[in-house]
């Protein structure tokens, strides 16, 4: 546990003391805020819940933000050679992987945290929202947390597989985007295969949770997917010792 905390603290200071991190946060909040207002204005006449506009805006820029956060997690360590120092330190592979993962997740959550106030700000300035559906808000943030957890673990694994940050970034982005386009893919394949793809389609999960509908199936899917990715990352890291 101590080793994990040490790695986590090291990651946090690497994130929060770097100007790149603040640029990432500012850019994410700029585009997410703008997309939210645009989506609300567009959906005004349809009558879709305002929480749908909020979570569509937050999810739209998630793949690229997570790619920026995770692409350098291991690739940069490999390139600069600090991975050897890390691996010879008295920490296990699990502690290294979980510590780095926790650091990236913490940074991502801090980046997205101001979005909690979006609806309250909208209500203050527009006076148009009669009340804020806290249930739907809680459901939406639940799926946001789970999808983010899965995407960060996927990005971490991709970063571990290469020493080049650009390659890691491309691999991360493609792997993270895949669940987001499964809905479109499901419409292009035979019905049975389409049903399986639809089951895993992140777009559908977001639109259901953003309406306040909580289902254990996507929750188990993302949790088990996260554990699977982290397990693979540990196995890949362990294999470095033996080669």
């Amino acid at each position: 546990m101590k080793g994990l905390l040490t790695v986590w603290r090291r990651e946090l200071s690497a994130h929060f003391l770097s100007p790149v991190a603040y640029v990432t946060m500012v850019v994410y909040l700029l585009v997410a805020g703008w997309t939210f207002v645009w989506a609300v204005e567009k959906n005004q006449e349809i009558g879709d819940p305002i929480t749908v506009s909020l979570f569509v805006a937050l999810f739209l820029w998630l793949p690229i933000t997570i790619t920026v956060i995770t692409m350098g997690l291991f690739a940069e360590e490999k390139r600069s050679g600090t991975i050897e120092t890390l691996m010879t330190a008295p920490v296990t592979e699990w502690q290294v992987v979980l510590g780095k993962y926790a650091g990236a997740m913490t940074f991502l959550l801090v980046t997205m945290a101001p979005s909690v106030g979006y609806l309250y700000i909208f209500r203050t300035f527009s006076g148009g929202v009669p009340f804020i559906d806290t249930g739907a808000l809680a459901a939406g943030y639940t799926i946001l947390l789970l999808v983010s957890a899965f995407c960060v673990s996927t990005g971490l694994l991709m970063s571990l597989l290469t020493r080049h940050q650009v390659v890691a970034a491309i691999a991360c982005f493609c792997a993270i985007c895949l669940p987001f386009i499964l809905r479109v893919l499901s419409r292009a394949v035979p019905r049975n295969a389409g049903a399986v793809l639809e089951y895993m389609a992140t777009e559908l999960h977001i639109l259901e949770f953003a309406r306040g509908v909580v289902d254990t199936r996507p929750m188990v899917l993302y949790l088990s997917g996260t554990i699977f990715m982290l397990f693979l990352a540990v196995r890949v890291l362990e294999s470095r010792r033996w080669t």
Binding site: D133, G135, G212, V213, V214, D215
Partner: peptide, 9 residues
């Protein structure tokens, strides 16, 4: 599986 509707309405 289980499902819940957390929305106010």
């Amino acid at each position: 599986y289980s499902r819940w509707d957390w929305s106010s309405a």
